[in-house]
């Protein structure tokens, strides 16, 4: 077998790949931020059993955890327009979708992995010893203060291993944005294959890029885990 990676030296392809990589990273980072916001807010609402909202949040979790992220992305990208949710482009006067492909991809990542994050954070909160919570209550902490100062800081630490999986899953899932024409690394790679027919080499390259990205994320999460670890507490080695 003759592998030829000389196309990687082409500045034109290099520019494409770098743009694609940048888009993948930006999508992932924005998705992660949205995921954490949804995760913490949702966990707070369900944990404190906020009336009405808690039911809706549970419904949200079931809807988004139990459907494929690709279906969610297609819903956001195609179905919202189909349902009449469009804007009018001031320049051309044409009706355009309210969300760009990029926005849809970020939203779908945030919603799907956010729904998982809610459950992950909740399991961490449930692992906080009841004595610790009672200690806070006895010192006059309100339920919200107990959540903010005691349960969340401890619960987030306890949920770090499961959250690391979720972060990696989000980065990998981001490649489905290529299907709504977002020029991420996957999309760029497909374009290059159409031009040079070096399918195997390009796909090996894509493979390596995702391994590198995911490994970086794992290393970063481990670093954070070490940074926030409670000395002498818990079974986490």
């Amino acid at each position: 077998m003759n592998l030829d990676f000389s196309w990687l030296a082409d500045p034109y392809y290099q520019y494409w790949l770098l743009r694609g990589l940048g888009t993948t990273i930006l999508m992932s980072v924005l998705g992660l931020v949205l995921m954490m916001v949804i995760g913490i807010a949702g966990a707070l609402i369900i944990h404190l059993r906020v009336p009405v909202l808690a039911t809706w949040t549970t419904l949200f979790v079931e809807m988004f955890r139990n459907t494929p992220p690709l279906v969610q992305l297609f819903f956001l990208y195609f179905m919202l327009s189909e349902m009449g949710l469009t804007l009018t482009d001031p320049a051309t006067g044409q009706r355009i979708p309210i969300f760009s492909g990029f926005t849809c991809a970020v939203l779908s990542l945030g919603l799907y992995n956010g729904a998982l994050a809610i459950e992950i954070i909740r399991s961490g909160l449930l692992a906080v010893p009841s004595q610790t919570v009672e200690g806070a209550r006895s010192l006059g902490y309100s339920r919200v203060q107990t959540f903010r100062y005691i349960e969340l800081p401890i619960g987030l630490r306890l949920s770090m291993p499961a959250m690391t999986n979720n972060v990696v899953s989000l980065i990998k899932t981001s490649n489905q944005a290529a299907l709504v024409a977002v020029a991420d690394i996957m999309y760029t790679a497909t374009q290059i294959m159409l031009e040079n027919f070096r399918n195997l080499e390009v796909m090996i390259f894509v493979w390596v890029v995702y391994v590198a990205l995911s490994s970086l994320a794992v290393v970063a999460m481990r670093y954070i885990d070490r940074l926030i670890r409670i000395p002498g507490y818990g079974a986490v080695a």
């Binding site: 004595q131 009672e134 200690g135 806070a136 006895s138 401890i154």
Partner: peptide, 13 residues
């Protein structure tokens, strides 16, 4: 009214 518990109930973090 402060309270001290059997299991200390300190904030571990």
């Amino acid at each position: 009214v402060a309270m001290v518990f059997q299991q200390y109930n300190l904030f571990p973090h």
